[in-house]
Design a protein around this nucleic acid. Structure first.
Length: 230
DNA sequence: CGGTGATCATTG
DNA sequence: CAATGATCACCG
C-alpha cells in the first residue's frame, strides 16, 4: 500500500494483496479516515477508501481510476459464501445522441475491459469497521462474457434510441440491467419518446447483475483452487 | 445536471 | 429473500 502512483498493473496487484485480510476499520485507521456508523448516508465510502488505499487518481471524473493503466477499480460486497450481495453499478447510460454506436466503442465496454475487483465481506449484520477486505484480482471479460454483455447492451440501446426507454425495467437484460441512477425519482434528463420526440425522464445507469459478478468470482476462485493443487 | 462512489429498502 | 426501483454524499 503506497501513496505514490503505481506504474504497472503488477505493482497495483501487489498493493492490493498487501491490504487483503485487513478489516475496513484497520485500513481506515492506517489512512487516518473516520469510519461512519453505517453506509446509509455514506454509500460510496468503501469505494472511496479503497481508491485512497490503492492510489486511484481519477476522483469523481469520468475517466478510469488508474488512467495510466486503463484500469477500473470496483469493490464487490459479498457474503461468507463468496456470493455478491448487490448488483454492480458500472456507469450512466447515454439516452440521446448515440444512434449507430457500436458496443466496442461504448463507454461501458471501455470501462469493463480492465477491472480490478476487490471483494469485501459485507453482510449487513457485520459492523462496517469489522468487514474484511478480500483478495483483489484483475479481470478481463472472456469472449462469452463479452458476447453476453454486448447482446444485452444492443437490446437496451435499441429500446433507448427507438423511444422505448419507459418500457425498460431492471429485469430486461440477462447480465446487464438498466436501472435508475439519480439523486431521487424526480431527477430528469433528456431522452427519446415513443414517437421520436424529445422527452424528460429519469436518468439511468448500467448495472451488472449479481449472477454475472458471481460467475466472475467463481472463475477466479476456481483458478485459485487449481493453483493450490499443482 | 451529470458524473463519481455505491447501498438502501420496499415489494413481489 | 432476491430483485427492482429509490436514494445518499460529494464534486465540477
Amino acid at each position: 500500500m503506497k501513496k505514490t502512483p503505481l506504474n504497472t498493473a503488477g505493482q497495483l496487484l501487489h498493493c492490493c494483496h498487501s491490504i487483503a485480510g485487513l478489516t475496513l476499520g484497520q485500513l481506515a485507521a492506517q489512512l487516518k479516515v473516520d469510519v461512519p456508523a453505517n453506509l446509509k448516508r455514506d454509500k460510496g465510502w468503501v469505494g472511496q477508501l479503497l481508491e485512497l488505499a490503492l492510489g486511484a487518481e481519477a476522483g469523481s471524473q469520468a475517466i478510469p481510476d488508474f488512467p495510466a493503466l486503463g484500469i477500473e477499480l470496483k469493490t464487490l460486497p459479498i457474503d461468507q459464501q463468496g456470493k455478491p450481495l448487490e448488483s454492480t453499478y458500472v456507469c450512466v447510460a447515454p439516452l440521446t445522441g448515440v444512434t449507430s454506436q457500436s458496443w466496442q466503442q461504448s463507454w461501458i465496454c471501455q470501462k469493463l475491459q480492465h477491472v480490478l475487483w476487490v471483494p469485501i465481506l459485507a453482510e449487513r449484520q457485520i459492523p462496517l469497521a469489522e468487514r474484511v477486505i478480500g483478495t483483489g484480482f484483475l479481470w478481463q471479460p472472456s469472449v462469452a462474457e463479452q458476447q453476453a454483455l454486448q447482446q444485452d447492451w444492443e437490446e437496451l440501446m435499441e429500446l433507448i434510441t427507438l423511444g422505448g426507454i419507459d418500457q425498460i425495467r431492471g429485469a430486461h437484460g440477462k447480465v446487464l440491467q438498466l436501472r435508475p441512477k439519480a439523486a431521487d425519482s424526480k431527477a430528469l434528463t433528456a431522452a427519446v419518446g415513443a414517437n421520436g420526440e424529445p422527452i424528460q425522464t429519469l436518468p439511468r445507469g448500467f448495472y451488472l447483475k449479481a449472477s454475472f459478478t458471481a460467475a466472475i468470482l467463481s472463475r477466479q476462485f476456481n483458478l485459485a483452487e487449481q493453483s493450490l493443487k499443482y
